[in-house]
């Protein structure tokens, strides 16, 4: 008897409580869906418009019809770009620059971050802050002095780097290295101190501690930094615009602008196609690495 009474008493209160909690949750979910949808529409309209325009002929683009509909879909823009040697050169230059920059950045940032995060040496804290401050100086301020430096360097040594695609391999890391180092310092700092002490006692050198403990454990951070470095070098516009001029040395963003805009004639269909094709590699990389990135984050890799 007593036990049933207890159940009778507690049952309603419990359900009421649960229901009120789930009602709260329902509303929270509704609001999040509402704003997420709003944001998705806002973010996806430009690429959609690009896609629509890329499927049109120039005649249809300039015709006074509904701009949101393709009446005579065509792949001619794609065919033209993908068969043009120029566009493929831009693509190749962009790919080479990005891959090399990512590699150079990681080769510098990861050991630098490890040293700054773990090897206490004189001035390491100041240096770490200094690295971050470097990142705060905008490129619009840097490109003129940098350009001048390469001119002076060229005059002094006779090695002409300006207007060569590989000059960007020297220029881009000024943006990517400080930021990636900063990200990696954060990730490395979150690894418990005992982990490297255990490794050191187990007989690992600093280098082995870095490669066999720190890099695997901080892999999500490493991937985040890689994605960042890739995106920055792939999408960089100002520096290649300044440092490269010959058509065969251009990277994609600058190439599209300089070759597809002839005077005041805009080849909109091809510009949109080029931009879409240019957006594909970062998209693919995000798609592949994001899963891994999130999996790494949720696994709590640094929890001993």
């Amino acid at each position: 008897m007593t036990s049933t009474a207890v159940i009778d008493k507690s049952a309603p209160t419990r359900t009421v409580k649960l229901r009120s909690m789930s009602r709260d949750r329902t509303w929270a979910l509704r609001w999040s869906y509402f704003f997420l949808t709003l944001f998705a529409i806002f973010a996806l309209i430009p690429p959609l418009y690009m896609l629509i325009t890329s499927l049109k002929t120039s005649a249809e683009i300039s015709a006074a019809t509904n701009p949101w509909w393709v009446y005579h879909p065509t792949l001619s823009n794609y065919v033209e770009l993908l068969t043009s040697n120029q566009f493929l050169t831009f693509f190749r230059n962009s790919a080479l620059v990005s891959i090399f920059v990512v590699t150079i950045t990681m080769l510098i940032s990861v050991p630098a971050a490890f040293a700054l995060a773990r090897m206490r040496f004189w001035g390491s804290a100041t240096l770490a802050t200094g690295v971050f401050l470097t990142y705060l100086i905008p490129e619009t301020l840097l490109f003129l002095p940098l350009f001048k430096m390469f001119v002076v360097f060229g005059d002094m040594t006779g090695i002409q780097l300006i207007n060569k695609w590989y000059v960007l391999l020297i220029v881009y890391p000024t943006l990517t290295v400080p930021f990636c180092t900063w990200i990696m310092i954060g990730y490395f700092a979150s690894i418990p101190k005992e982990l490297d002490e255990a490794a050191i006692i187990d007989g690992a050198s600093w280098f082995q501690t870095l490669t066999r403990i720190f890099i695997p454990v901080a892999l999500p951070g490493l991937i985040a930094a890689t994605i960042f470095a890739f995106t920055v070098s792939w999408a960089q516009f100002l520096y290649p615009l300044v440092f490269t001029t010959s058509t065969d040395q251009l990277v994609l963003p600058v190439g599209i602008i300089t070759t597809l805009i002839k005077g005041d004639v805009f080849a909109w269909g091809q510009i949109m196609t080029g931009a879409l094709l240019g957006a594909a590699p970062p998209l693919i990389i995000y798609a592949f690495l994001m899963d891994y990135y999130i999996a790494g984050l949720t696994a709590g890799a640094t929890k001993g």
Binding site: E194, L195, E197, A198, A199, I213, V217, G304
Partner: peptide, 10 residues
């Protein structure tokens, strides 16, 4: 042997 075990998580 450390207080927080310090096992290599990976």
């Amino acid at each position: 042997v450390f207080q927080n075990y310090a096992l290599y998580p990976h």
